[in-house]
């Protein structure tokens, strides 16, 4: 089957929240599991993210599409962490905010793309910063729905100022105010959950995708 036709059908299966069809289509990709993930899941999720940014796809579809991909990858790779990308070491959290859907979708997108990450759940500035240091985290993803929670990221950044930990931010306040990611000292901003995958890849390779680097960012 033509790869682009396969991707088209896979995206539509995700939008229709059709697990069985998505599984069937993924099984048609030849090669090892990570190759199948790269060929089908990663580009499909990226397109869903772009569709959401343009207002053409709803968050409920993004959520379920990410979850389906996460389940498919769990099945493909099993419980073994060895088959997943072991680097960069990543964690994700929200700061004093029980709105966790964004964090969940980003987790699904990253796990569905073959990455590992630790979910810190809801934490305080101190607890998140301390844990990121003790876990040897290289990329800390912070998701925010509430403005006050987004602004607290600045305090996390300050706590981590002398650490080689890159902070990636995302969530509604950053979409409504593109200057906010720079204001809180983020190293990068993801405009949607699947863009986060691209940002993580680029950060680990020392480059960033267009649009994700806050102006005046202190590195790169």
């Amino acid at each position: 089957m033509d790869p682009s036709a396969l991707r088209y059908d896979f995206e539509h299966a995700l939008l229709a929240m059709n697990r069985d069809e998505a599984r069937r289509l993924l099984a048609r990709v030849p090669g090892p599991p990570l190759a199948a993930i790269e060929a089908l899941i990663v580009p499909s999720l990226a397109r869903l993210g772009e569709g959401w940014e343009r207002g053409q796809i709803a968050l409920a579809q993004i959520y379920m599409g990410g979850r389906i991909c996460e389940e498919l990858v769990d099945t493909l790779l099993g419980s073994s962490q060895n088959e997943r990308y072991g680097r960069p070491r990543m964690a994700i959290a929200t700061i004093e905010d029980h709105h966790q859907l964004g964090k969940r979708i980003v987790s699904s997108a990253l796990r569905g793309s073959g990455f590992q990450l630790i979910d810190y759940g809801v934490g305080t500035v101190d607890s998140i910063a301390a844990r990121a240091v003790s876990d040897g985290i290289e990329i800390l993803l912070l998701s925010a729905l509430m403005l006050r929670s987004a602004l607290r990221i600045r305090d996390v950044r300050t706590r981590l100022a002398d650490r080689p930990i890159r902070v990636v931010v995302g969530g509604a306040p950053f979409i409504f105010d593109h200057a906010l990611s720079r204001e809180v000292g983020a190293d990068a901003m993801a405009t949607n959950a699947f863009h986060a995958v691209e940002v993580v890849r680029s950060l680990s390779q020392g480059s960033l995708p267009q649009g994700s680097l806050p102006q005046g960012a202190p590195w790169v």
């Binding site: 004093e96 905010d97 029980h98 509430m146 403005l147 006050r148 929670s149 602004l151």
Partner: peptide
């Protein structure tokens, strides 16, 4: 209800 000094109160655990 979770109270903050600099933002609206939030709902706590579901």
């Amino acid at each position: 209800v979770l109270w903050f000094d600099d933002g609206p109160p939030n709902a706590g655990r579901p």
